[in-house]
């Protein structure tokens, strides 16, 4: 399902002394089935933006459509937005509360008023998608699971709503490197299987470079740049200036070029850099 944002502005505490412009005239379109990433330093407006996409915040001005529904229209019911747009907050495992994994994942679909069999089907499906074995985990308490497993349960709870737009706010924060990769692989797997639209908010430029179709850069409440990773990560100085960086692969390539070892194209993955260098360096060496 596509996302269309037109001239979105959000002002906190409008009319008060502490009035802050959190979003200023943001417009963009995300076609159905695209995987986009939003980057920007803390306070740049990322969180405010994604909270508009599932109706938690209402714009001061501007309009948002998800598919053919204008969600900023006052007559649209929240439940109809939630069916379409799932939001996984930062540290979503803090919001687990039920006694078993099964019950926790069932919470959302039950609230949609679905019949029991459909709720059960969705729980099984979403557990499979996030890589939690049904027999092993369904009846366990979410609180006795590892950090990575808890987060999978929390994400399964959102996926069980079968949203056509899935938004994830830093889904790997605080996870160890293995769980970090596992969660991102899982998101890609869900994306491949369900063809949903993904919006990933991340501080990790490597992840963004490796996985996103397009990257949106936020700064001071504005959408300052967007494009394919190869395009946006060309702007090394600009990104550093606004408190961000480039993927390490791009960084090494840039440092090499500066020192006379030309790396012509923008490389995004470690493997690309390795193959590129392997062809140009003599075997053996010191």
């Amino acid at each position: 399902m596509s996302i269309t944002v037109e001239n979105l502005t959000h002002i906190y505490n409008k009319g008060l002394a502490y009035e802050t412009i959190a979003l200023e005239d943001v417009s963009f379109t995300v076609p159905s089935g695209e995987f986009i990433a939003i980057i920007g330093h803390t306070g740049s407006g990322k969180s405010t933006l994604i909270q508009h996409l599932n109706g938690i915040l209402k714009p001061t001005s501007g309009e948002i459509s998800i598919g053919d529904i204008k969600i900023t229209d006052k007559r649209v019911k929240m439940v109809d937005i939630r069916k379409r747009v799932g939001l996984v907050f930062q540290y979503p495992e803090y919001q687990l509360f039920e006694e078993t994994v099964y019950q926790d994942i069932s919470f959302g679909p039950k609230n949609l008023g679905l019949p029991t069999e459909e709720v059960d089907r969705r729980i099984r499906k979403s557990m499979q998608l996030v890589g939690l074995d049904f027999e092993e985990f369904a009846e366990r308490s979410p609180f006795e699971l590892s950090g990575g497993q808890k987060r999978r349960v929390a994400i399964a709870g959102v996926i069980a709503m079968e949203p056509e737009v899935l938004i994830l706010d830093e889904p790997t924060a605080g996870l160890d490197p293995k769980s970090h990769q596992d969660i991102l692989n899982m998101v890609e797997e869900v994306h491949r299987e369900t063809k949903n639209t993904i919006v990933l908010v991340s501080h990790n430029m490597n992840d963004v470079a490796e996985r996103a179709d397009r990257v949106f850069i936020m700064d001071s409440g504005k959408l300052v740049k967007s494009g394919r990773p190869q395009e946006v990560f060309r702007e090394r100085e600009f990104l550093s200036h606004i408190g961000l960086g480039v993927p390490q692969t791009t960084e090494v390539a840039a440092l090499l070029s500066e020192r006379g070892f030309q790396v012509p194209e923008i490389l995004l993955r470690a493997d690309d850099l390795i193959s590129f260098l392997a062809e140009r360096l003599p075997a053996g060496g010191v």
Binding site: G40, H41, T42, A173, G174, H203, G243, L244, G245
Partner: peptide, 11 residues
């Protein structure tokens, strides 16, 4: 984990 929640600049 002092940098887990920070952006690249903050880290």
């Amino acid at each position: 984990e002092p940098t887990a929640m920070l952006d690249p600049g903050g880290r």
